[in-house]
Lab assay of single mutants.
Amino acid sequence: EVPFKVVAQFPYKSDYEDDLNFEKDQEIIVTSVEDAEWYFGEYQDSNGDVIEGIFPKSFVAVQG
């Protein structure tokens, strides 16, 4: 069931425009499960802007 919160276990950096880049310990709200390997989610950056994109499930852990 979406949405749910995950926390980055590792930093994720990608050159693909659709990917969500983040640092370790970033909290991310997952709004869609793309497939067995990928989530789609969002978070607010330090400027208060909402950043969204896809990212690999293996880089995050589900909270709770």
Rank of each mutant, 00 (worst) to 15 (best):
E1Q: 13
E1N: 12
E1D: 11
E1T: 14
V2K: 06
V2P: 11
V2T: 10
V2W: 05
P3I: 05
P3C: 10
F4A: 01
F4N: 03
A8E: 03
A8D: 00
A8K: 00
A8R: 01
Q9G: 04
F10V: 08
F10E: 07
F10T: 06
P11M: 09
P11Q: 09
Y12D: 01
Y12K: 00
K13I: 10
K13W: 11
K13A: 07
D15G: 12
Y16L: 11
Y16E: 12
Y16I: 12
Y16M: 12
Y16V: 13
E17H: 11
E17P: 15
E17C: 15
D18Q: 14
D19C: 15
D19P: 02
D19Y: 14
D19S: 14
D19A: 15
L20W: 03
L20F: 09
L20I: 05
L20S: 01
N21Q: 10
N21T: 10
F22P: 01
F22H: 01
F22M: 03
E23W: 05
E23P: 07
E23F: 06
E23K: 06
D25V: 03
D25M: 07
D25Q: 05
Q26K: 03
E27D: 05
E27K: 04
E27F: 06
I28S: 00
I29C: 15
I29K: 07
V30C: 04
V30K: 01
T31A: 02
S32P: 01
S32T: 05
V33C: 08
V33G: 03
V33H: 06
E34L: 15
E34W: 15
E34Y: 15
D35E: 06
D35S: 14
A36P: 12
A36I: 09
E37C: 15
W38E: 01
W38V: 05
Y39I: 00
Y39H: 01
Y39T: 00
Y39S: 00
G41I: 04
E42R: 14
E42M: 15
E42F: 15
Y43Q: 00
Q44P: 07
Q44V: 14
Q44H: 10
D45E: 06
S46R: 11
S46W: 09
N47K: 09
N47H: 09
G48N: 05
G48Y: 03
D49R: 14
D49H: 12
V50T: 13
I51L: 13
I51M: 11
G53I: 04
I54Y: 15
P56R: 05
K57E: 04
K57P: 06
K57S: 11
S58F: 08
S58V: 09
F59H: 14
F59C: 15
F59L: 14
F59E: 03
F59Q: 05
V60A: 04
A61C: 14
A61Y: 12
A61S: 13
A61I: 14
V62C: 11
V62Y: 13
V62I: 13
Q63G: 10
Q63F: 13
Q63T: 12
G64H: 11
G64D: 12
G64M: 12
G64C: 13
